[in-house]
C-alpha cells in the first residue's frame, strides 16, 4: 500500500537565516498509483460517500496538516 505523503530531508545550509525545517513533505495522492480503476472495488456507504467525497475508499486521501504531522514525527526519525 502506497503512502499518500512522502518526506525528505532538504539541504540545510550552515548560514540559513531561519531555523530549518528538518523534514519536508509532499502529497502523493492515490490517483497516482491506481492506474485504470479496477472493477468491483469496495464501496463506501452512501452516507460515507457523501461525507468523504468519494464512493471508493481506494481513492480517499485525507489531508492532515503537514506541519503538525512532520513536527510530531521529527523526533522519531532523527534518532
Amino acid at each position: 500500500m502506497s503512502t499518500y505523503r512522502k518526506y525528505y530531508r532538504p539541504f540545510i545550509g550552515p548560514f540559513d537565516p531561519c531555523s530549518p525545517i528538518q523534514w519536508k513533505s509532499y502529497e502523493t495522492p492515490p490517483q497516482l498509483y491506481l492506474g485504470f480503476q479496477p472493477y468491483n472495488l469496495p464501496q463506501n456507504s452512501p452516507k460515507e460517500a457523501l461525507r468523504t467525497g468519494t464512493l471508493w475508499p481506494a481513492l480517499f486521501a485525507p489531508y492532515p496538516d503537514p506541519y503538525k504531522v512532520s513536527t510530531s514525527e521529527e523526533g522519531e526519525e532523527q534518532n
Binding site: S2, T3, K6, Y7, Y8, T28, L32, Y33, E73
Partner: peptide, 8 residues
C-alpha cells in the same frame, strides 16, 4: 512516488 528508505 516511491516510498523512500526512511519509512514514516
Amino acid at each position: 512516488k516511491d516510498d523512500q528508505s526512511t519509512k514514516k
